[in-house]
Design a protein around this nucleic acid. Structure first.
Lengths: 181, 181
DNA sequence: TTGACAATACCGTCCAGACGGTACAGTAAG
DNA sequence: CTTACTGTACCGTCTGGACGGTATTGTCAA
């Protein structure tokens, strides 16, 4: 079900994200995506019959890879459901450090039509509910969740406002609070 | 210096923001903006000689109105510089409740070219530095700042994920921490 | 006072190019 | 024969922006 060799589909998705990052979220054209992916335009439209479908796939792809990373992080430590908040925090912290161009694809989808973000909304709400069922102090959960959301939005907008120590301060504070629950 | 009657310029800016919210950030056209503002396209181009200039103005406008609101909030309570974090938190909290369509204009600017957000980055960094100089506990400041950033990004993306009580929990937590400093 | 001119604040039209998408013939692999 | 494309040609639409015009108001010398 997963683990293909780099298919055309994957190359197109990657090319679209990279391009969105280069030309700006609202200036993504099918011709340019096809060219960057090393695929003809006909080939692109064979895989994604319409631009909207491409955008949906971009969002789905982003969500899927995040989901996988979260599951991997939870598996890496003990599967005790109790510390999945800690897993979420640490995963997000690590993601802040590195590049993740796939986020640019999400912005492209947003630019095209904000409704493409509906799956993201659903995903986040589900995640929050899961976290909620596993923690006792809801106020602290909300703070942690929102801090990460803030960090994530900064990354999305390429706003490298925070110094490393500033970010770490917030993160260690969160981790300490999460551990004491 | 301020307090004009609704000039063409202002009508255009407002129309652009509203339209961005309706048609999606990446689908903002000059023709549509002109029409909605009740101005001819030539008239629009007179006020904003290029689309890029419009976008810049949209961002500037957004920043300015936020700055004004923050100053007004600080003035409303005592001008003691100590509690400007509290002012920031409460202002942001109130803004979460209400509609503020001007944010859609910022997304339109982002869609066109992410560099248009540079002024936002500068503004936020300045704000953070000011807050930093007025508080003792930097870790708690960072948490508060990032929580608000998270709230703000959700509003921007129209992600009404949080229930009112969830949001209030985070906010009252923040206010309590800010007061105890 | 008046006539000449200029600046301001627009209007309405036009155009070259880019875009999403279609159509279709061909092809190489399995 | 089907799948997964390639390549080319094309269509209708939309877009940013250039351009020429116009009404109003102001300025200022004679």
């Amino acid at each position: 079900m997963s683990g293909h060799r780099p298919s055309s589909r994957d190359k197109i998705l990657a090319a679209a994200s990279e391009l969105a990052d280069i030309v700006g979220p609202g200036n993504l054209s099918l011709d340019a995506v096809a060219q960057r992916a090393g695929v003809s335009k006909g080939g692109l439209l064979y895989n994604f019959p319409t631009k909207a479908k491409l955008m949906q796939a971009l969002v789905q792809d982003y969500l899927k890879s995040f989901e996988d990373a979260l599951a991997a992080e939870a598996a890496k430590r003990g599967d005790t459901t109790k510390n999945s908040l800690t897993a979420y925090i640490e995963l997000s912290a690590r993601e802040c450090e590195q590049k993740q161009p796939s986020a640019a694809g999400v912005l492209a989808a947003l630019a095209e039509d904000p409704d493409f973000l509906n799956p993201v909304r659903d995903f986040k709400r589900q995640l929050l509910d899961r976290l909620k069922s596993e923690t006792t102090d809801t106020a602290k959960l909300m703070v942690a969740f929102l801090v990460i959301e803030g960090l994530r939005s900064m990354k999305l907008f390429d706003m490298d406002i925070l110094h490393d120590d500033e970010r770490n301060m917030a993160l260690t504070y969160l981790l300490a609070e999460a551990a004491s629950t």
